[in-house]
């Protein structure tokens, strides 16, 4: 399952989708919205995605992970729209017979997703707003 959704992420569904009777481990990564950036309070984030391409890129990442680790199941759900601090922006779950593989695969998937998936976020502060990582002269703490 690869999902880009404006609705709150159903973490249990992500876990259930990735689970398998043959698995000895399900590894879950949950990304949440942090309340500060550049020492300022973040009021909220605006996420957007190039949805068709994001799904295609995430599928390539999953394919690569499936070649490198013996995965039995997987699921990725990424939220778009307006998210407040504390809300879940992304949930990833993978299962494998032994835990080491699912730990490694899960980290690989979130790292690659952040590098490749065409998803953007804008930080909204009290005194302005900024697309994360977009411009070289603006330091970012999100990468």
């Amino acid at each position: 399952m690869i999902k880009i959704t404006p609705k709150p992420i159903d973490i249990q569904k992500v876990i259930d989708t990735a689970s398998s009777l043959g698995a000895g481990a399900v590894n879950v990564f949950i990304g949440t919205v942090r309340n500060t950036a550049h020492g300022k309070n973040v009021l909220w984030l605006e996420y957007e995605a190039y949805e068709a391409m994001a799904v295609a890129e995430i599928r390539k990442i999953i394919d690569e992970a499936s070649h490198r680790w013996p995965l039995l199941g997987w699921a990725v759900s990424h939220r778009i729209g307006t998210l407040k601090p504390g809300e879940v922006s992304v949930a990833i779950a993978v299962s494998s017979p032994h835990r080491k593989d699912s730990f490694e695969a899960c980290q690989f998937i979130i790292d690659k997703l952040k590098e490749k998936a065409p998803i953007w976020k804008k930080e909204i502060f009290q005194d302005g707003e900024e697309w994360v990582s977009a411009q070289p002269n603006v330091a970012s703490v999100y990468n």
Binding site: M53, A54, L113, A117, I119, W120, W131, S133
Partner: peptide, 26 residues
């Protein structure tokens, strides 16, 4: 067409083209 393109790729009429600034998912 929903994939990153190299500088040398030739564009064709009807291609779906998109600008991808630095991504920040997760």
């Amino acid at each position: 067409n929903h994939a990153y393109a190299d500088d040398g790729q030739v564009l064709a009429a009807g291609d779906e083209i998109a600008l991808i600034p630095p991504v920040a998912g997760g």
